[in-house]
């Protein structure tokens, strides 16, 4: 049996170890980065054509917009409601397709379910490209590909959702407890069965939360896709601004605000109920 050491602790001596200095000089890499970023910011400001006249006129112009925007053009609500409905439908269809396609891509991208490391790299790269290109750029590409209208909007939302959901699905799959996966492998189940019976159900609550967040994000995104001709309420907003019909523009902005807040609220409630109640695949 070991004995307790009851000897007193030695008092710290004046010649004891020195504490590290409070500040350290940043490395050359950090210094160069800060200098480059600072230089770009200064250059950017010099190109802004900032004049005192423009800054002084800004409040008056904003007030002009607000005063002509209120009261909103409520008589246009029935017409605008149809465009708003189209926006919501675009978001729902685009998100559903995006979630559907992101699942197999996530299974190929996750290290623990990918059939080969090359497939993992390819799937991850595809997700990065989809996520990195802004949705308005995707919308312009799809307007060129399939023409003006909601189909371009749906495709944009789908690609944006795949990039976003695919990444989070893959990360969740990589974090899964190996237990149920090993249990299914040990029965002699095929790789596909293991994914369907262990991987997807175990990650299902997280997938549900991410999908609802994607829907919320899509409703917000779909509202502006019309600015580049990809359908929805954004088309009406663009026209209203071009014709300087600020009361109509204000009506559209308020409608977008209400729908986005409502979508956030509904998605939050649904997410909470599904996660607290334990989302299941019975």
């Amino acid at each position: 049996m070991s004995r307790l050491d009851t000897r007193p602790m030695p008092a710290p001596s004046a010649g004891g170890p020195r504490s590290p200095s409070r500040f350290t000089r940043p490395g050359w890499g950090a210094l160069i980065t800060v200098l480059v970023l600072g230089g770009m910011a200064v250059h950017g400001v010099s190109r802004l054509d900032l004049s005192p006249e423009r800054l002084l006129n800004a409040p008056a112009r904003t007030w002009d917009f607000l005063s002509r925007g209120f009261p909103p053009a409520t008589d246009r609500i029935p017409n605008l409601a149809e465009a708003m409905l189209e926006t919501i439908e675009m978001a729902i269809i685009g998100t559903a397709l995006g979630v559907l396609f992101s699942l197999p891509i996530a299974l190929l991208a996750a290290r623990n379910t990918t059939p080969h490391s090359w497939v993992h790299v390819a799937a991850k790269s595809l997700l990065t490209v989809m996520r990195s290109v802004p949705d308005l750029v995707w919308a312009m590409v799809f307007v060129v590909s399939v023409g003006l209208g909601p189909i371009a909007g749906i495709l944009t939302i789908m690609v944006d959702t795949i990039g976003f959901a695919g990444r989070f699905f893959a990360e969740r799959i990589e974090e899964l407890d190996r237990g149920p996966i090993d249990a299914l492998r040990s029965t002699g189940a095929t790789r596909l069965s293991v994914m369907a019976c262990a991987v997807i159900p175990t990650a299902f609550p997280s997938f549900t939360g991410t999908s609802l967040y994607c829907l919320e994000k899509s409703v917000r995104g779909a509202a502006v896709l019309g600015l580049v001709g990809a359908g929805g309420i954004g088309v009406e907003l663009n026209v209203a601004f071009q014709l300087r019909q600020f009361d109509t523009a204000m009506t559209i902005i308020i409608m977008i605000l209400v729908v986005v807040l409502l979508a956030e609220r509904l998605s939050g409630v649904a997410r909470k109920r599904m996660l607290d109640g334990g989302a299941s695949v019975r």
Partner: peptide, 12 residues
């Protein structure tokens, strides 16, 4: 195989 950590799929 019977596992120490049981390893059922909880969500089903």
């Amino acid at each position: 195989t019977v596992f120490q950590s049981i390893n059922l799929v909880d969500q089903v």
